[in-house]
Design a protein around this nucleic acid. Structure first.
Lengths: 188, 188
DNA sequence: GCCGGGTTGTGACATTTATCACACCACATT
DNA sequence: AATGTGGTGTGATAAATGTCACAACCCGGC
């Protein structure tokens, strides 16, 4: 609960009473390694706040290759938002790479919270704009940076992660093949 | 005003009275070819709804190359949202490529509208989630598709646009050089 | 201890794309 | 008509990256 609170208070302060109310909309879920929170074709009833663990949000391209949209570590929100917001089937997978816990929030819970507490409406709006801006950065990154520049940016934005997960997964995030990534960090 | 109304009513119906109220928050601006709505370093007081004309949202990479984040035609909203939402200086340019008219809305006006009319708050939220999902699609596009696939997707998503603007601009959107684009559409 | 599967590095080669150079064309100006 | 400018196609070449193959390694299960 403290982690949820500190996450919210990055945007807006909340009282103890409000916090208890907010917390009641979330359910806790323990997640094992290799467990999926979302699989392609699923309904997506929740968005998730990672309390611990490492997760990857990815999809399968037509040619069968995996491409990773984002990594989520502690304090990150994640879902297949397209499906979540539009009550559609998932086009992506969310897989746990290191066991941990997540908090689950339904779209209905989200709307209830927004309606009851104006500051939560504000919180969700700020979070969405932040996610939007982050995605825009990722587009810029992919458009104008070389594989090496993207690799170096990844090291900065995800310190230590390279050591904890398979390199082919990092390659799928950067948009290069495993071998190219391998050759990138020896020439440094 | 009718174009603004139909844009809003893609999400939610509004009465004549509401529409007049909403409209009062917007200002109309005529835009000439080559005119900038936003330039790098500017404050970004507005977001814009294109009523007519063609606009490009782009930025300059470190090596001086232009990269286009999106094209906006009739019925598209645009701004440098990072700067707009966070009261920061623009990191992007918005240039008019075919003369037209835009409606301008300040962040303050946006918040006033949201506070006064709950359906407008909803409208802005839906719009932001749609923009978010669209960006996510663009990330997927850049991650998993070849230059040729991106070219073909561009033809579908922006019918007729290729004929109306310089090819090098399209190339800057697709993330390839001018010559590569030139070679793409002869091998079709 | 031994085996088998997955991960990683690395070389050889193919493919894709960028870069550079140049010619041609449309168009506006003088 | 002469001129200049920007857009466009195209060839030659270089650079980046992907593909394929293989060997070394780690690690867990038996």
């Amino acid at each position: 609960m403290e982690k949820l609170r500190s996450n919210i208070e990055e945007v807006t302060p909340v009282s103890d009473g409000e916090m208890a109310f907010i917390h009641s909309f979330f359910s806790l879920k323990k997640v094992r390694r290799y467990q999926y929170l979302v699989q392609e074709g699923d309904d997506v009833p929740y968005e998730y706040l990672a309390l611990s663990g490492i997760y990857r949000v990815y999809y399968l391209a037509d040619d069968g290759k995996e491409h990773i949209v984002k990594f989520a570590e502690e304090n990150c929100w994640m879902s297949d938002y397209k499906a979540f917001f539009k009550h559609d089937r998932a086009s992506m997978f969310i897989e746990c790479m290191e066991a941990g816990e997540v908090l689950c929030l339904t779209l209905y819970g989200r709307e209830q919270l927004s309606a009851e507490l104006h500051k939560m409406e504000h919180f969700f709006k700020v979070r969405l704009t932040n996610e939007y801006v982050a995605l825009e950065e990722r587009v810029k990154q992919l458009l104008s940076n070389t594989a090496r520049q993207r690799y170096e940016a990844f090291l900065k934005s995800h310190p230590g992660l390279l050591q904890r997960i398979p390199k082919k997964v990092v390659a799928a995030y950067l948009g290069v093949c495993r071998e190219t990534l391998s050759r990138l960090y020896l020439s440094c």
